[in-house]
Design a protein around this nucleic acid. Structure first.
Length: 461
RNA sequence: CGGGGUAUAGCUCAGUCUGGUAGAGCACUGGUUUUGGGAACCAGGGGUCGCAUGUUCGAAUCCUGCUGCCCCGACCA
């Protein structure tokens, strides 16, 4: 059972028993569209600057995002674990980052005066775990990852969960004997990221990037093009057409051809761009200068942490060498608003099926009408049995309110059950994205829905 | 951290200039009528006006200090 199926088992996905306090008006603090829609759709509630509660609808989306990330990390050979949020300052002194990291690192002390930090990232801790038990090159390669809440005391958090102080992040850390095998590990994550963001409904372009406080000399930011993006980016238009590595990609094979193909065309963020090079390498009609949202970043940093922290192992010649590492992040709580920035219209969110909080919503336009109630109950039951993630709007609201609410929260398909059509044993199926509506008989609606949703789940691509 | 705004009901806001005991719409509760794009009517409930201090017979309104939140910039997944 996947994490979201847990939520859908049992007969309780009725709106009348759910917790979905959507807002008709936009709270004034929200500036960008994803922030506004996340507040209005009752996905999140702000608790303080840069700190948010994830309400049931938003949390369900977050779990689906997490599930896809885990599937693709596991497929690429990474192994999941979980490290604590609070870390001893000692580890950070070892790497030299206790002083190097600025005020974004939240420092606190416990009752005995021991200094702690609320982890802004986990390179030190994973290196500590690694050095405690791995001593031989025979145990490599190794890639460990976790999905955990992190805290960075940003000077100015903004844009809702797009840049919050507390955020959920996937961090993978690779360990290899030398640079050559480390690059192979880097490539596995690179390919996993292409697949991950594609399945999340936000195909991302890898771009050359700065390494920042993580350090190292090889790094890519995975960028989703969006008008509201924080970074300015330069790239070749053909990157938008590149094929995504398929489900049967062999992660034990050499992935360099795929990575080379994706990195052969110009793509760089503003921080590192050489504009003359951009002009020279990219034909005018293929030049894209746009804004983008950074949803993930990959780093190769060699022995930056292993050396000062003594993470060494024995190679085949019996020599003790520092391990080569990389780290690979995806900000889950940033991915969610990024998906919305890329998938919305004036009425609200339009979720890709793969991450939609519900795949389908049934709108009973006239609660209390015998025929409507009966049809809705039957459809609801059958969709649950067909393993469709369904929400039934059985609230006492007017038809208009139900339409508006369903559009706002962005459920991909709506089955509209009204007194007129039900007299002919028909219901209406509406596609949220295209706004197309079509009538179907009660006997054919279930199969129709299954045939539409199944491929859109993108779990077999 | 520099600059700029803002704080009145759950939400969006009026009232502040010109001091006189708190308002609207939406939401909520009870009732009646409605039912295909955020319904109508009737009757209700709900606010120490961000906090503190001062001026005044009297402060949401004027003075001073503080805090939260938002926006622009520098920094970041």
């Amino acid at each position: 059972m996947t994490s979201w199926e847990y939520f859908t088992k049992g007969d309780f996905m009725r709106l009348s028993r759910y917790f979905l306090p959507t807002l008709k008006e936009t709270p004034k603090e929200a500036e960008i569209v994803s922030h506004r829609l996340m507040l209005r759709a009752a996905m999140i509630k702000q608790q303080s600057a840069g700190s948010y509660s994830w309400l049931p609808l938003g949390y369900k989306i977050l779990r689906k995002v997490q599930n896809i990330i885990e599937e693709e990390q596991n497929r690429a050979g990474a192994i999941e674990l979980l490290m604590p949020t609070l870390q001893p300052a000692e580890l950070w002194r070892e790497s030299g980052r206790y002083d190097a990291y600025g005020k974004e690192m939240l420092r606190i002390s416990d009752r005995s005066g021991r200094e702690m930090v609320y982890g802004p990232t986990n390179e030190e801790m994973i290196t500590d775990i690694f050095r405690a038990s791995v001593k031989s090159y025979k145990e490599l390669p190794l890639n460990l990852y976790h999905i955990q809440w992190k805290f960075r005391d940003e000077i100015r958090p903004r844009f809702g969960t797009m840049r919050s102080r507390e955020f959920l992040m996937k961090d993978a850390y690779s360990f290899d004997l030398d640079k050559k095998t480390a690059i192979a590990s880097y490539n596995r994550m690179f390919v996993a990221y292409l697949r991950t963001f594609y399945r999340l409904g936000i195909p991302a372009i890898p771009m050359r990037a700065e390494t920042g406080p993580i350090g190292g000399n090889l790094s890519h930011e995975f960028i989703v093009l969006a008008e509201t993006g924080e970074s300015k980016v330069y790239c070749h238009a053909d990157l938008l057409e590149k094929p995504i590595p398929a489900l049967d990609t062999d992660f034990d094979a050499d992935l360099a051809p795929i990575v080379n193909d994706w990195t052969s065309l110009f793509a760089a963020t503003e921080d590192v761009v050489d504009k003359d090079e951009f002009e020279r390498q990219v034909p005018k009609e293929k030049q894209i200068f746009a804004r983008g949202i950074e949803v993930g970043q990959t780093f190769y940093f060699g022995d930056k942490y292993s050396k000062p922290m003594g993470a060494t192992l024995t190679n085949e010649r019996g020599e003790e060498v520092a391990v080569h590492s990389g780290s690979y992040g995806i900000g889950l709580t940033r991915v969610v608003p990024a998906i919305i920035e890329a998938n919305h219209d004036e009425n609200g969110i339009i979720w890709p099926v793969s991450v939609a909080p519900f795949e389908l919503i049934i709108l009973n336009l006239k609660m209390g009408d015998k025929d409507c109630d009966k049809a809705c109950e039957e459809i609801y039951e059958q969709l649950l049995n067909a393993n469709i993630d369904v929400l039934y709007d059985d609230s006492e609201k007017g038809a208009g309110a139900k339409f508006a609410n369903a559009d706002l929260i962005g459920i991909p398909l709506q089955i509209i059950v009204g007194p007129k059509n039900i007299k002919n044993n028909e219901v209406e199926l509406k596609n949220r994205k295209t706004a197309e509506r079509e009538l179907f008989s009660l006997s054919e609606i279930i199969n129709k829905v299954v045939s539409i949703i199944e491929p859109l789940r993108m779990n077999k691509v």
